[in-house]
Amino acid sequence: KAKLLVLLYAFVATDADTICIGYHANNSTDTVDTILEKNVAVTHSVNLLEDSHNGKLCKLKGIAPLQLGKCNITGWLLGNPECDSLLPARSWSYIVETPNSENGACYPGDLIDYEELREQLSSVSSLERFEIFPKESSWPNHTFNGVTVSCSHRGKSSFYRNLLWLTKKGDSYPKLTNSYVNNKGKEVLVLWGVHHPSSSDEQQSLYSNGNAYVSVASSNYNRRFTPEIAARPKVRDQHGRMNYYWTLLEPGDTIIFEATGNLIAPWYAFALSRGFESGIITSNASMHECNTKCQTPQGAINSNLPFQNIHPVTIGECPKYVRSTKLRMVTGLRNIPSIQYRGLFGAIAGFIEGGWTGMIDGWYGYHHQNEQGSGYAADQKSTQNAINGITNKVNSVIEKMNTQFTAVGKEFNNLEKRMENLNKKVDDGFLDIWTYNAELLVLLENERTLDFHDLNVKNLYEKVKSQLKNNAKEIGNGCFEFYHKCDNECMESVRNGTYDYPKYSEESKLNR
């Protein structure tokens, strides 16, 4: 008799109507990190870190770059004969040098303040090359056809396309004075040089004057150069050297050249137009028929994500570079809930034993079982409120962090190594801060989002509990077992918050 009662009780308990509160689960393989956990499985997430590029040089917003090819900045601007293909260059979106560009200054020497000139050019998007001192009329008392084997072109001695090597005419090199007034309405880049012979005999042979000088002056520039005559090792078949100089001439300003020898005179100059998204990159990537809004030396990035880990040097509207390998923000729920887990921000989770793959029309909802059958029903209101809140948060985070910009490298010469090392340390410090901030932001927001979901499920549970009161009992896994019969209409009233407690209280009292 006792065995019969136990079996009867078990049958009745199993047959009781139930309603459970749960949440969506799926077959997603997404994982995120939080402050407290690593690799948390979630139903949905968004990636904030771009880690792919196309490996190509592309047009930037429809404008092609200027590819210097086998030449570098120095060779292009001075007019190395091997860089003749660059003479027609007028406009570009950015400038590309190759790491091993070999054609710079063909006659050995240095372009002074080269690093600063590169910085200036990094904001130039177009130029006009014009004859600042016409070759045939500007130097009537001097020979202007100086050439050298060091600047050979097609097997013949030649010289820079933008400079003139002035030497004596006959047996004399009379003092020369020439000036140019900038009437271009924009900055003009003027380049010139000073020749330093290897011996007094060479000085006399070329310029006749043993104590020659070169003077260059404008409103913002004033220097006097004296040739340094000295024996030097042979470089590119030359014992002599040429140093090259430049200045930016403001609109309306005048530049005056005065010399008694050794002047490498300007022939062509450049009127410059600035462009905020221009820059110089060093890259071996090849040019393709493609378009982008962000270019790196590795390749083009076409992404609206706020961060990238491809390269710190970028041109155009680019994500911020960070050292992170993963920045994924959760938008959905835990896919593998932890039992009795309390989140960092106070939300209680884990009283549900598992997510439901059968509930596909919402994030949170119900599963019921009664004599009429069983089924899932999503709670659309709480789901939609959660979707709206999380979507707004993700968009806000992306908008705040998605300050796209150009980031170019800084140039230092060989004598500025300590400054370069200090600059690298400062840049590394800023990069570490950006990386830390980005990672911390994602970790915190992921923790908040998961706790937010847990709290929403808990609130749904409490909503049902407050309606049923003692007409049902909690069975410990997020479910309630009714003390009365609850048909589909009754189940719907529980879900929509209109459950009639008094209607079922007498039946429940008897069954309790």
Rank of each mutant, 00 (worst) to 15 (best):
D201H: 11
S199W: 10
S157A: 12
R223C: 09
T254A: 12
K3R: 14
N145C: 06
Y245T: 03
L57K: 06
N141A: 03
S138D: 02
N220G: 13
Y221I: 14
W92D: 14
Y173H: 07
T14F: 01
A105G: 05
S200A: 15
P140S: 13
P233S: 12
G275L: 08
E228D: 07
E258F: 07
M242S: 11
F11K: 03
L60F: 06
L48K: 04
G275T: 12
K59N: 15
T74V: 15
R154G: 08
Y9R: 08
G279Q: 07
E115C: 06
G252Q: 06
C83W: 12
L111D: 02
A41V: 15
S28W: 03
F133H: 05
F257N: 00
H196N: 14
V235E: 08
R241W: 15
N103L: 11
N243V: 04
N222I: 13
K3Q: 12
F11M: 12
A259R: 00
A271L: 13
L57E: 10
Y160L: 03
L164N: 10
E136N: 15
S208P: 12
E97Y: 05
I255C: 00
A105L: 15
D15H: 13
K234L: 15
K1E: 07
D17C: 07
N220H: 05
L272M: 12
L60A: 02
N178H: 02
A13Q: 14
N183S: 15
S157W: 06
E202R: 13
S138R: 03
K1I: 14
Y114M: 09
L263C: 05
L77T: 02
Y268G: 00
K70I: 13
R232Q: 06
P65W: 09
K56E: 00
H24D: 00
L121E: 03
F257K: 03
D110T: 13
S200F: 06
N72W: 02
E119A: 08
Q120A: 07
G193S: 06
N220C: 07
F133A: 09
I95F: 09
T43S: 07
K135W: 08
D30M: 00
P174Q: 01
Y114P: 10
V124R: 00
T167A: 02
N26F: 14
A105F: 08
L127I: 12
A16H: 11
G185L: 13
T43W: 09
F144Q: 08
S158V: 01
S52A: 15
H153Q: 13
T177H: 12
F276E: 07
C106Q: 02
V188S: 04
N183Y: 12
I73Q: 06
S122K: 09
F11L: 14
S123K: 02
Y180E: 03
E119I: 03
K59D: 09
Y9A: 14
V190A: 08
P227M: 05
L121M: 10
K56Q: 08
D110S: 10
T14G: 02
D17K: 09
N243A: 13
R90Y: 13
W92I: 01
N182M: 05
L77S: 15
S52L: 10
G69Y: 06
P108H: 08
H239P: 13
L4Y: 12
V194Q: 01
R236Y: 10
G79D: 01
T29W: 15
R274C: 06
P266C: 04
T143E: 07
H44A: 13
K1Y: 09
K175F: 13
Y94C: 03
S28V: 07
G79A: 12
Y268A: 03
V214T: 10
V32W: 00
R274T: 08
T226H: 09
K156T: 15
E131P: 15
L49S: 11
K1L: 14
N145E: 12
T14I: 15
Y244K: 07
Y107V: 09
P134S: 12
K184E: 10
E228N: 06
S85P: 09
S157R: 07
I95D: 01
S122Y: 04
Y213K: 11
P197L: 02
I255L: 15
F11C: 15
K234C: 09
L263Q: 02
W192H: 05
L87P: 01
N178G: 13
P88W: 00
Y245H: 15
L48A: 02
V42R: 06
A212E: 00
R236I: 01
F130D: 09
A25H: 02
T177A: 15
A230Y: 14
H153Y: 12
L117T: 05
L176Q: 01
H196K: 01
A230F: 13
N27A: 15
D253L: 00
R274A: 02
T14V: 14
G240F: 05
E250C: 02
N39R: 12
I256A: 11
K38I: 02
L7R: 10
L7N: 03
S198I: 04
S278D: 04
P174F: 09
D33H: 05
T74N: 10
N211L: 11
Y114S: 15
Q238R: 11
L49K: 08
Y114K: 02
G155L: 02
A41F: 14
L189D: 05
R224V: 10
L127V: 13
S172K: 00
H239S: 10
N39T: 02
V190N: 00
T167W: 04
S179T: 13
A25Y: 15
E50V: 15
E97S: 08
I63M: 12
P99A: 14
G146S: 09
Y244P: 07
C151N: 04
A13I: 08
S200R: 10
V12D: 08
L5M: 13
K38Y: 06
T29E: 08
R223N: 13
V190W: 04
S208A: 15
A41P: 15
V42N: 11
K59C: 02
T31E: 15
L49R: 05
D237R: 04
S273P: 00
D84E: 15
S158P: 00
G104T: 05
G69F: 12
G146M: 05
L49F: 05
L77Q: 02
V42E: 11
C83Y: 03
A231P: 12
S125L: 15
D15G: 02
S172D: 14
Q120S: 11
G69I: 01
G146Y: 07
L86M: 12
I255M: 15
H142W: 08
I264Y: 04
Y94E: 02
E136P: 06
R129E: 08
L8M: 15
E131K: 06
N26E: 02
E258Q: 06
S215T: 12
E82T: 09
I256F: 14
Y245F: 07
A13H: 11
Y94R: 09
D237G: 12
N100L: 14
S137E: 13
F11Q: 06
T143R: 01
A41M: 05
D15I: 07
A265Y: 05
D110Q: 03
L272W: 02
N47V: 04
S218Q: 12
C151E: 03
Y173I: 07
H196Y: 13
S199M: 10
Y107W: 07
W267A: 10
K156F: 03
I35C: 12
D84H: 07
F130P: 02
G104P: 07
E97D: 08
G109F: 09
Q204F: 03
S91E: 12
L117P: 05
D171H: 08
P108W: 13
L5R: 00
L206P: 01
P88C: 00
S52D: 01
S278A: 15
S205N: 12
S278H: 13
F133L: 04
K169W: 07
K168A: 13
E136R: 01
K168I: 09
G185V: 01
E82S: 11
E228A: 12
I73F: 14
L7D: 02
E119T: 04
